[in-house]
Design a protein around this nucleic acid. Structure first.
Lengths: 237, 237
DNA sequence: CGGGACATTGAAACGTCTCAAACGATGTGG
DNA sequence: CCACATCGTTTGAGACGTTTCAATGTCCCG
């Protein structure tokens, strides 16, 4: 059974005792969204839509990992964001999407026509406010990514990436931080996202392994062995 | 006479014939915002608030240029965004601001208490929608900045920065692109924003001058001499 | 007019990128 | 079921460009 649409972010105001990311929507709002949404199932590594294409709907992620990217004139592909369950994407610019979106893992999405969503916003200001929170949250994420990209040391960038990936992987379920978590994307996508070459990513991963900080049981899983040193690397801005 | 609050962004939907950034708010909405807003005047180079401090209001820029930044553990200051007239900032996270904000030039701001704004949103869904557009716009700007930061060539980053700065400087007034435009921020801020050292910024500027692409009549103005080559550098992603 | 912050320029060191090759997993066809 | 082709990843060696360190130069404000 598929859960109702979910939108997770950090609210503007301080209300809750625990400092954790929470669900924003009420059960009723989730039902209303479900009513106007279409469920879309995607196999891994397929393009949902391309930048510039006509935008008449936004998407919420129920399950899976997607990537938002741009194809640069040079042919290089630049990943600007990874998208996880309870994330939203597809907010357009003059009726056209700005990024291309492709699935990384198998994924399940809610597709919500923009016209219907606007109508819903019209008589549910609180719902719209939650979307405002969510977008703001994504803006902050984007700014955090800027912090990553201005780092000079490649290994620190990889460390920060792994740390934030671990947080993101706590989203679909409720478990706290665990030593073992999935690394759904390819090294190529990581490289593109981190602004470095695939070789550099590979070398950094090797170094992290050699120093006993993490382990890669296989290419799509990470185990944290020495959290103190990983956090130290990630935090040494 | 101070203009009423202004919010410029690119709408989601395609409606307008001209492809230019436009004002989002109606005259009535601007008046309502003005009613709940306090006008704040800032001299250059002063801190408006620091990250982590208590957040109970958002700000709209009527005039001037500001910067959003983070102080890193290393003591380095990282500029994550420059803010221009008709930009908004101050959307918080659990009641605390996430970036520090400081003026770059003298500035005039509208300070809008968050509680009042929420109340306004409650019975003006359209207004809230414009804020949603605006935030989305800022998210895109942030992603464009990510594109800049993933570039390997420093001179290309500087070129992109100059080009987008020229666009931003068309905002307070109505003039189209001009050959001469202001460069309000210091080289140090530029360096921080572009993820490179001050020296590298300086060298790139010198190279641009030596190649006859731009000129710097003084440290805070730029003149484009060879737009074709500047655009070529900026576009060579 | 001087002080101090900011900006420019030079020379050396470091780290990543590029190029190139080997390796490993994966899936297809014989 | 195995062989093979293909794609993604890892590892190595050299070149390039930026960072760093240091010194000089310039602007602005007291």
């Amino acid at each position: 059974m598929l859960p109702t649409p979910s939108l997770r972010a950090v609210p503007f105001e301080q209300i809750r005792p625990n400092g954790v990311t929470t669900e924003l929507l009420t059960e009723q709002q989730r039902r209303r969204l479900a009513d106007i949404a279409t469920v879309i199932t995607l196999p891994p590594n397929v393009v949902l839509y391309r930048e510039e294409s006509l935008a008449d709907a936004i998407y919420l992620i129920a399950l899976g990992v997607l990537k938002g990217y741009r194809d640069l004139p040079s042919g290089r592909q630049l990943v600007v964001a990874f998208l996880f369950p309870a994330d939203m994407f597809g907010l357009a610019q003059e009726g056209h999407y700005v990024n291309s979106i492709a699935s990384v893992t198998p994924a399940i999405l809610y597709r919500i026509p923009l016209a219907d969503l606007k109508a819903l916003f019209h008589h549910d200001a609180a719902l719209q406010f939650q979307f405002l929170c969510k977008i703001t949250h994504e803006l902050r994420e984007s700014q955090r990514q800027i912090m990553v990209l201005t780092r000079r040391d490649a290994i620190g960038r990889v460390a920060m990436f792994l740390v934030s990936l671990e947080h993101d992987s706590d989203r679909g379920d409720r478990r706290g931080p665990r030593a073992l978590f999935p690394l759904p994307m390819s090294r190529t996508d990581m490289a593109s996202y981190l602004g470095m070459s695939v070789e550099a990513v590979s070398r950094c991963c090797s170094r992290l392994v050699r120093q006993g900080i993490v382990a890669f049981p296989n290419r799509h899983e990470v185990r944290v062995l020495d959290r103190a040193r990983l956090d130290q690397l990630a935090g040494a801005l």
